[in-house]
Design a protein around this nucleic acid. Structure first.
Lengths: 133, 133
DNA sequence: CTACTTGCAAAAAATTTGCTGCTAT
DNA sequence: ATAGCAGCAAATTTTTTGCAAGTAG
């Protein structure tokens, strides 16, 4: 539950981080699990869940909370946003951002002390545009 | 699964919409269920799920996809965003928005045809600020 | 009428947890 | 040494679904 005081870099954790970083998609825990078993045949789904949780707690990866029932994870820990296809749910990174005063503005309006934000753009992806046309 | 051609306004659906609109919080399906049983003791959880789904499909309410494992729903169907407290998960509405060109900009960058966006600001709410201080 | 909806119960999907033995530090 | 982790399996939590009977339009 709580993130331990001293994190260890176990084989499993290393591989999870490694694979996620080279993925450039935004897999669910279950998708990661299926992939990881190629390198670590005995890894368990529980371990995948626990590690994705810990890694995002310490900021090495991002937990993406967007549409859909499953959580998704992103090996890219830098500040960026996402576009999602309303039809096929495809998810991609977007590197645009609102101006820096936005968080301040919301802080004043709501009395929350706003630290960051996430944005999800929703639309139709190139593939689905063709399919629809 | 598919939204029917003709929607009926049943008692259950009416009450769900009604209660959700006067709530000003952003309840989960289960929270709605517990509340609704006061007015409709025999309503089932399945009905609550199905109706929240249908109502958001037709745009009468909003399905909020934010942090956390459960989906939340918002009786306010107008375009607005949310602030979430990183400590206690309290969720509030925010009426700020990015400039209208943002969606266009993302459309050009990603080749998605962007229709809308959602923003979630994350920070510490007034209560938790006090508790922490 | 009849397409749509409900309640109920069971199933499925997603995530978390208890435990015991192993391992990174 | 020892706090932290892994694997496994069981339990929980959240959501969906099949079905037979009821109802709005």
């Amino acid at each position: 539950m709580d993130t331990p005081v001293n994190l260890r870099m176990t084989k499993q954790r290393q591989v999870i981080l490694d694979e996620l970083r080279k993925m450039h998609t935004h897999p669910t825990a279950d998708e990661m699990y299926r992939l990881l078993r190629k390198r670590l045949p005995k890894i368990s789904l529980g371990t995948v869940y626990r590690n994705l949780e810990v890694l995002s707690d310490v900021g090495l990866i991002q937990k993406i909370e967007v549409a859909g029932t499953q959580k998704r994870f992103d090996g890219n820990a830098s500040h960026h946003h996402h576009v999602r296809c309303a039809q096929c749910s495809r998810l991609e990174d977007v590197y645009v951002d609102v101006d820096v005063e936005m968080d301040q503005k919301v802080s004043r309006l709501t009395e929350f002390e706003v630290a960051t934000h996430r944005m999800e753009f929703v639309g139709v992806c190139p593939n689905c545009k063709i399919a629809t046309a």
